[in-house]
Amino acid sequence: MSAALSAAEITRALTRISHEILEKNNGSSNITLLGIPTRGAHLATRIAKIINEIESCDVPVGTLDITLHRDDLRTRPPKALMPTLIPSAGVDGRDVILIDDVLFSGRTIRAALDALGEIGRPKSVQLAILVDRGHRELPIRADFVGKNIPTSRTQSVAVNLSEIDGQDEVLISDGEAN
């Protein structure tokens, strides 16, 4: 098991992503952040905090659980559901930034796009990701990437965040992916 990102590097990556989001969207006025539980939701909260400090604003932030839209439901035991909390302004006409910890096959993001389509019609949907580990199975890419980490399929990537795991770090371990 080796560390791919330290706590300081994670903070720097999130700060850079926040600036890139603001740059691409000409400020914070029309953006809505949606984190994919569990860790994506915490990352969304952190990015919102950084953006609020830069722009002195109050950017809408929520969570989007994609479990009910997964395409692999039949192949594994049912998972517990996590909250979906959409900010009161909704998503219609907004620039929605989906936020997750790891981008791998792209299937989670496909499910998230389906879930988002049920909720409304955003002006645009962008994707921010802390770690892109490759091996896409669908034509999906991230707009904002914390770090590209080339991996083999058998390795597993664990993102630990202080809110849940006690400390910030990204670990790569060999062996069976979980």
Binding site: L68, L81, I86
Partner: peptide, 20 residues
């Protein structure tokens, strides 16, 4: 019971129909 909370939230919101 916990799953039902999220189901209630989904039904209250705009996502009335789920593909599950």
């Amino acid at each position: 019971l916990d799953t039902a909370i999220e189901m209630a939230r989904a039904s209250d919101g705009p996502m009335k129909k789920l593909p599950t």
